[in-house]
């Protein structure tokens, strides 16, 4: 199973107006892997994530998912290919309850698997079960992140894209969320593509990782290799971790 290619980003260039945000990015994600993308603010990590989702679309290059070119598909059709995303800033629906938020994730199958999937999510994140009839906007940051991941999982994704799941969260909660991601990967074989600023946690979790600087991928390797790499340590780890 592992080793088979699921997502392939080839020479992708993305522009915001005239400004080039990505200049020729190549990234591959194989089935069953956790791959992370680390880099500083403004390196283009989130742009790559959004380009995979088709908003904005890549100007040149190709995004191939499961052997199919999805570069020019509109966002909602890409989502229907079972690429689920927990977007930057979580973007849960604040006035809808936790359960309704999860329901929105299950819309692709018209709620066919809603009940069994909700139970799975509640096992993964028991906090959401306690809060199920509470409005999304009243949740804490960590709970909102859990909800955002849970909502993405409700779509039964082949590939889960996570954009900065640790943003603004306490270390203990980050640990819990990363453990949940690990568990999903090991038990369900879920493929995860993770964008993170928290390089240490991300590299420890990942099978492979890419480092991004100024819209280019400058380094890649296994998580362990990059953790040991002096350049990576100097730029992303020693400054950030105490």
């Amino acid at each position: 199973m592992a080793g088979e290619n699921l997502l392939k980003v080839q020479g992708v260039e993305t522009y915001y107006g005239n400004i080039r945000a990505l200049s020729g990015v190549d990234v591959e994600v194989n089935k069953g892997e956790i791959v992370s993308l680390i880099g500083a603010n403004g390196a283009g990590k989130s742009t790559l994530m959004m380009t995979i989702c088709g908003s904005p679309q890549a100007k040149t290059g190709q995004v191939i998912f499961d052997g199919e070119d999805i570069t020019r598909l509109p966002t909602h059709l890409i989502a229907r290919k079972r690429i689920a995303q927990s977007p930057e800033g979580r973007r849960i629906f604040p006035r809808m309850t936790v359960l309704e938020n999860l329901q929105m994730g299950a819309n692709l199958d018209n709620l066919k698997y809603f009940k069994e999937d909700v139970e799975k999510i509640f096992v993964l994140f028991p906090r959401l079960k306690e809060r199920q009839s509470q409005r999304g906007g009243t949740l804490s940051g960590g709970e909102q992140q859990m909800l955002s991941i849970g909502r993405a999982l409700m779509a039964r994704p082949k590939l889960l894209l996570l954009d900065e799941p640790s943003l603004g969260l306490a270390p203990l909660i980050v640990k819990g969320i990363f453990e949940a991601i690990k568990k999903l990967n090991q038990e369900e074989g879920l493929t995860v593509f993770l964008v993170e600023q928290n390089a240490f946690a991300a590299l420890k979790l990942s099978d492979r990782a890419y480092v991004m600087v100024n819209g280019r991928v400058t380094m890649s390797g296994s998580g362990k290799e990059l953790l040991a790499n002096p350049e990576v340590r100097a730029a992303y780890l020693e400054g950030g971790r105490h």
């Binding site: 977007p87 973007r91 629906f93 809808m96 929105m104």
Partner: peptide, 24 residues
Amino acid sequence: MPIGRAWEALREDEIACRSLGINT
């Protein structure tokens, strides 16, 4: 129904809607 839920979700967050496969 799905369409009504989609309306309400659209009111809350259009980008999230699209990433969940809703044709806005």
